[in-house]
C-alpha cells in the first residue's frame, strides 16, 4: 500500500480536500471520501457511463481516472445540478417524460445530456441518441430520455 496523498479539488463550486492512496479511483474518492454517492458505479471499465461527471466542464468517466489525476480540477456531479433549490431543466424534463425508472443510470445520463446540450444546443433525435449512447440504461429503452432531452433543449435555448 502506497502512502496516502492529498487531493484538492473543487466539487460543485465548493473546495474539497481528502487523503487517499494514489491508486484510488476518482469515483471511489467522490463516493467514499467526499460522501457524494450520487455518482454511481456500474462497470468500473468505462463502458456503462453511470459514473459520468463533468471535469473542467467536459463529461468524463470517473471510474477510469484516479483521484490524484483530478487534483486541482473543477468537478460537477449530480449533487450540483440543482440551482437555488430548483431542478435543472433537464431534471424537470426527465421527470415530466418518464426518463427514469430505477434511477441508477440517471446521474450519469443527466451529466452526459448536459454535456451534449452544451456542445449542441439543438440536437436532432439522431444526435441525441448518438450523444446519450455513452450511457447504458437498462430500464427505459431510452424513449423517455430522448423525449426529455428534446424538451430540455427547447427550454434551455
Amino acid at each position: 500500500m502506497a502512502d496516502a496523498v492529498t487531493v484538492r479539488l473543487t466539487v460543485n463550486g465548493v473546495e474539497r480536500e481528502g487523503r487517499c492512496e494514489p491508486r484510488k479511483l476518482l469515483v471511489d474518492f467522490l463516493r467514499e471520501d467526499l460522501g457524494l454517492t450520487g455518482t454511481h458505479v456500474g462497470c468500473e471499465h468505462g463502458i456503462c457511463g453511470a459514473c459520468t461527471i463533468l471535469i473542467d466542464g467536459e463529461a468524463a468517466r470517473s471510474c477510469i481516472m484516479l483521484a490524484v489525476q483530478a487534483d486541482g480540477a473543477e468537478l460537477l456531479t449530480i449533487e450540483g445540478l440543482m440551482r437555488d433549490g430548483k431542478l435543472h431543466p433537464l431534471q424537470e424534463a426527465f421527470r415530466e417524460h418518464h426518463g427514469l425508472q430505477c434511477g441508477f443510470c440517471t446521474p450519469g445520463m443527466l451529466m452526459t445530456a448536459l454535456d451534449l446540450l452544451r456542445t449542441n444546443p439543438s440536437p436532432t433525435e439522431a444526435e441525441i441518441r448518438e450523444g446519450i449512447s455513452a450511457v447504458l440504461c437498462r430500464c427505459t429503452g431510452y424513449h423517455g430520455i430522448v423525449r426529455a432531452v428534446e424538451a430540455a433543449a427547447r427550454k434551455m435555448r
Partner: peptide, 8 residues
C-alpha cells in the same frame, strides 16, 4: 433519483 439522493 434526479438529484443524486437515491440510496442503493
Amino acid at each position: 433519483f434526479l438529484t443524486g439522493q437515491g440510496r442503493y
